[in-house]
C-alpha cells in the first residue's frame, strides 16, 4: 500500500500515466522552455534552470524519468500537493508537462536564486539570530501543511531553498503523506535516514510530528554543518537513532538557553511530549530572529565557496 494524497490502492502503470496526463498541461514542454543548466539531482530526478521562450523569467524544472521511479504514484502526490497548496514559504508550482515519447515528467517551479540551505550550512557559520529566522520560516510552512493534515516527511536542508533576498521556502513534496484526520497515522519508512525520527526508524505508526524531529536535526545542521552520524553508514545511523534517541549536541554549553530548550522540544523522543508547530511558533527562541536579509552574505559566501 503506498502513501499518497488519498490512501491510493496499488495503481497500475497505465492508471498512473493516465493520472499524470490528467494533471499535466497540454503541449510540448521542450519547445516552451530553454534549458540553461543543471542545478542538482536527487533520488527522483534532475533539476535544471530554464527560461520560458516567450517571457523574460527564470524557472526551475524537475525532470523525472518515469521508467525508473521507485513509486510513480508519489509523483501524482507531489503535483497535487504543489498545485493545491499555496503559501509564502512553499516553493510555487507553475506548471507540469507529460512527455510521452521520452517517458518523462517535467514539473515547472519558481526558481530561487540563493540555492539550497545545505550550501549555507556546510560552507558558512550561522548565528542564532539567523538560525531562528530560518526555523521560523520553515515552521510557518510546516504549520500550514500540518493544518491540512499533510506531513512532508523529508525535512532537511537540501529541501529548503533560499532567495538572494533571504526568502526561505520548503520544496520536494514527492513524499508527502495525507492523513485522513488528526489521529490518522502512517507506517511506511519514508525520508532520509539521518533526519528520520525514532518512531520512523523503528517502523512504528507515525504522524505529523516526524517533521518536527527532522526540523531539530536541521537545526543541528545549521549549528554543526551536518546531521548527526553522517560519517556513519545509513544503516548504522538508523540504529543509533533507534537506540540513542536524542543526539548529542557539540559545544552545547555555547548555545543560548532558548535555543537549547527549542532543540529539546523538537528532539523529544516521546511523540506525545514532542512540541507541535503551534507551540514552537510561540517559542522564545524565535524572538531572537534577525532579519532574513542577513542571510544574503552567507548565501554569497556559500556560492563563492
Amino acid at each position: 500500500v503506498t502513501d499518497g494524497m488519498a490512501k491510493k490502492k496499488n495503481l497500475t502503470d497505465d492508471e498512473i500515466h493516465a493520472g499524470l496526463q490528467r494533471l499535466a498541461s497540454p503541449g510540448d514542454a521542450s519547445s516552451k522552455y530553454q534549458i540553461q543548466k543543471k542545478l542538482g539531482s536527487g533520488a527522483s530526478g534532475n533539476v535544471c534552470m530554464a527560461k520560458p521562450v516567450d517571457a523574460d523569467a527564470v524557472v526551475a524544472i524537475k525532470m523525472m524519468d518515469l521508467n525508473n521511479q521507485p513509486k510513480k504514484e508519489l509523483l501524482i502526490t507531489e503535483i497535487e500537493v504543489m498545485k493545491d497548496y499555496k503559501h509564502p514559504n512553499i516553493v510555487n508550482f507553475l506548471d507540469c508537462y507529460y512527455l510521452s515519447e521520452k517517458q518523462e515528467l517535467w514539473v515547472v517551479m519558481e526558481y530561487l536564486d540563493g540555492g539550497a540551505l545545505t550550501d549555507v550550512v556546510t560552507e558558512t557559520i550561522m548565528n542564532e539570530g539567523q538560525i531562528a529566522a530560518v526555523s521560523r520560516e520553515c515552521l510557518q510552512a510546516l504549520d500550514y501543511l500540518h493544518e491540512k493534515h499533510c506531513i512532508h516527511r523529508d525535512i532537511k536542508s537540501d529541501n529548503v531553498l533560499l532567495g538572494m533576498n533571504g526568502t526561505v521556502k520548503l520544496t520536494d513534496f514527492g513524499f508527502c503523506a495525507q492523513l485522513s484526520g488528526d489521529s490518522a497515522k502512517r507506517q511506511t519508512m519514508v525520508g532520509t535516514p539521518y533526519w528520520m525520527a525514532p518512531e520512523v526508524v523503528s517502523r512504528k505508526h507515525y504522524g505529523k510530528k516526524v517533521d518536527i524531529w527532522s526540523m531539530g536535526i536541521m537545526i543541528i545542521e545549521m549549528l554543526e554543518g551536518e546531521p548527526p552520524y553522517l560519517n556513519e553508514t545509513p544503516l548504522k545511523a538508523i540504529y543509533r537513532i533507534a537506540t540513542k534517541g536524542k543526539p548529542d549536541i557539540k559545544n552545547a554549553e555555547k548555545l543560548s538557553p532558548e535555543l537549547k530548550d527549542f532543540l529539546d522540544r523538537c528532539l523529544e523522543v516521546e511523540v506525545e511530549k514532542r512540541a507541535d508547530t503551534q507551540e514552537l511558533l510561540q517559542h522564545k527562541f524565535l524572538t531572537k530572529a534577525r532579519p532574513l536579509t542577513t542571510l544574503r552574505p552567507l548565501i554569497v559566501a556559500a556560492k563563492q565557496a
Binding site: 536527487g42 511506511t188 535516514p193
Partner: peptide, 19 residues
C-alpha cells in the same frame, strides 16, 4: 567515495538497497 557520500542524502521510500 564522493558518490557514496552524496547518495547518503538521498530520500528512501519503504526500504533501501542497504536494508
Amino acid at each position: 567515495k564522493k558518490r557514496f557520500q552524496r547518495k547518503k542524502r538521498y530520500t528512501i521510500v519503504g526500504s533501501a538497497y542497504w536494508m
